[in-house]
């Protein structure tokens, strides 16, 4: 082991500050294993050298990558199933009722992580709409460039495809690529991934029929939440639908939304007349 106690402490403090995750003493080997590839990529002999170089010349991108390497966990496909059941069961039929048959359906997966949510939506819509490949466009955005690149690649590890992806969908929509699984080109073409910081002015995109903004607001203070919800609303069509995480709501944050109960969950719609 090459990791010094000082380096380990520095990494512990960094990860705690940035992610609130506590690395217990004794997890030196974890730090070593997760950061060694990054050190080697930079031609450094070990993790302590990597830590030293960042301490001497602070660099936000590298710091962020260190935190990501130590905190990234695989996310689920049909995470909290309700927003997906509601998509094909209620939201899509309602939208199609108000659209011409050739009008596109536009969806935004905000804070898309490695793309599971965007591709879950793509799989569901390609089953529900015969012309989905032509008609549906899904914009996936994330703060992290690495996550955007992973979404674009559409490749997932064995552990990732085990997380709540039905086996029938795995064999229908993925092919093996080495020890990973790759999403079908048709579905990948439905998804466009770009970097985007939700807490800052948003890039030109939309307007969207459906926005998935789940488990994002919980990380921000009230003023930032209000700013995000306002900017998201500006990018939505007046009859659009917004899905938040199960523990999130617009109530008490932004009055310009109407809560609609959909099955066991709920969605939010821009309030009329605003």
């Amino acid at each position: 082991m090459t990791l010094t106690a000082t380096s380990f402490d520095w990494v512990r403090q960094l990860v705690h500050r940035e992610s609130a995750i506590v690395l217990q003493p004794g997890k030196e080997y974890l730090v070593e294993a997760r950061l060694l590839p990054m050190a080697q990529q930079r031609g450094l002999s070990g993790v302590s050298e990597l830590v030293e170089s960042v301490r001497n010349r602070p660099d936000a991108a590298t710091t962020r990558r260190i935190v990501e390497a130590l905190t990234t966990n695989e996310t689920s496909w049909f995470r909290d199933g309700d927003p997906f059941t509601a998509l094909t069961g209620m939201v899509l039929p309602s939208l199609l009722g108000g659209r011409r048959p050739d009008e596109p359906i536009t969806i935004w997966s905000a804070a898309c992580s490695s793309g599971q949510e965007a591709y879950t939506i793509a799989m569901l819509l390609s089953d529900a709409l015969p012309d989905a490949a032509r008609r549906v466009s899904i914009t996936a955005t994330d703060l992290s460039r690495e996550m955007v690149e992973r979404t674009r690649a559409g490749r997932f590890s064995q552990l990732e495809v085990n997380r709540g992806l039905p086996a029938s969908m795995l064999v229908r929509h993925f092919t093996r690529a080495g020890n990973e699984w790759e999403i079908s080109p048709t579905l990948r073409r439905m998804v466009t991934a770009t970097e985007c910081n939700l807490a800052a002015p948003l890039p030109r995109m939309g307007p969207f029929d459906i926005v998935y903004l789940r488990n994002v607001l919980i990380y921000f203070d009230l003023a930032t939440k209000q700013g995000i919800l306002r900017r998201v609303r500006q990018l939505m069509r007046p009859d659009g639908w917004l899905f938040l995480g199960a523990a999130e709501t617009t109530l008490g944050v932004d009055d310009n939304w109407e809560r609609v109960v959909l099955g066991r969950g709920s969605a939010y719609r821009p309030r009329k007349g605003n």
């Binding site: 080997y29 974890l30 294993a33 552990l159």
Partner: peptide, 20 residues
């Protein structure tokens, strides 16, 4: 090594790693 990484995380324990 990559296969082993997954096996270690899932089977041996979260945070257990095989260091190359």
């Amino acid at each position: 090594q990559r296969i082993a990484d997954d096996v270690w995380t899932a089977l041996v324990g979260d945070g257990e790693v095989l260091v190359p």
